[in-house]
């Protein structure tokens, strides 16, 4: 028994078939609990009013936007080193989900930013690095779609993911430098995670974050199952063509 057993598409399909309904139910439950608790059963913040409640969408999606890329990095490495097809397909499946998470984080951030800072967008380091992350997701997905040979596409996107990760990290610290150089003192304070938040807000936030994590897993597994079926279809068609 080892984890590599699941790298076989057949085993993966068999396991996820019974795992998915449970995970989906758990994801719906926790996202629902987190959001409903957060939106309706927490007091308004004394400074921010009810606008603070967007935190229950913003923080979990931002968290998953980064985690999705990290997961793609790991699965890409596994594909490059051990050449397990499921690993490559997991990375492929995760990218659009990560893209949407990044978009949600950016949009909710803008909506939150307007009443708080008086602007939808500022070239703050944190915001800018998310925009760059968004571009990385776009490039990654575009490369997957452009290359027709599936194994080659997996190879190339994996290399792009590795190189991209290094540059994403570089950009993250580079924009820090750039911003301080530009607007000293006017940098916007961004609420980060739960450290500055009291327990009333923090518990539903935690539930919501767990829910988004579960939702991500469910979506990625679902998409991977679809990818595996698509690959099987391709293989069957190719075999038919070869036989005729």
């Amino acid at each position: 028994m080892s984890i590599w057993k699941y790298a076989n598409p057949t085993q993966f399909m068999r396991t996820t078939r019974w795992l998915l309904p449970w995970l989906s139910a758990l994801a719906i439950l926790s996202v629902g609990t987190g959001l409903i608790w957060g939106f309706f059963f927490t007091p308004d913040d004394f400074r921010q009013g009810s606008t603070v409640k967007i935190i229950y969408l913003h923080v979990p999606s931002a968290l998953m936007a980064i985690n999705a890329w990290l997961m793609m990095l790991v699965t890409s490495l596994i594909w490059l080193i051990r050449r397990h097809h499921v690993s490559a397909l997991l990375a492929r499946a995760a990218a659009p989900v990560g893209l949407v998470m990044t978009l949600i984080a950016l949009i909710t951030g803008g909506i939150w930013g307007q009443p708080m800072w008086g602007t939808y967008w500022a070239w703050d380091p944190r915001l800018t690095s998310f925009l760059i992350l968004f571009l990385f997701y776009l490039g990654y997905i575009a490369l997957w779609q452009a290359v027709e040979t599936q194994d080659t596409a997996a190879d190339l996107t994996s290399v792009l993911c590795l190189v991209g990760s290094v540059f994403a990290l570089l950009s993250r610290y580079a924009v820090n430098f750039w911003n301080q150089g530009l607007h000293q003192g006017t940098s916007v304070p961004v609420a980060t995670g739960g450290r500055t938040v009291s327990d009333v807000f923090f518990v539903p936030l935690l539930i919501s974050m767990a829910g988004f994590g579960l939702m991500f897993v469910v979506l990625v597994l679902l998409r991977t199952r679809t990818e595996i079926r698509a690959r099987r279809l391709q293989a069957l068609l190719a075999r038919e063509r070869a036989a005729s």
Partner: peptide
């Protein structure tokens, strides 16, 4: 990365520009 592609030009921009950021 894009050497095998027919219309690699546009894709190159999308792939390379984020890497040019720093």
């Amino acid at each position: 990365l894009t050497v095998g592609l027919k219309r690699g030009g546009l894709l190159i921009s999308l792939l390379v520009l984020p890497l040019y950021m720093p």
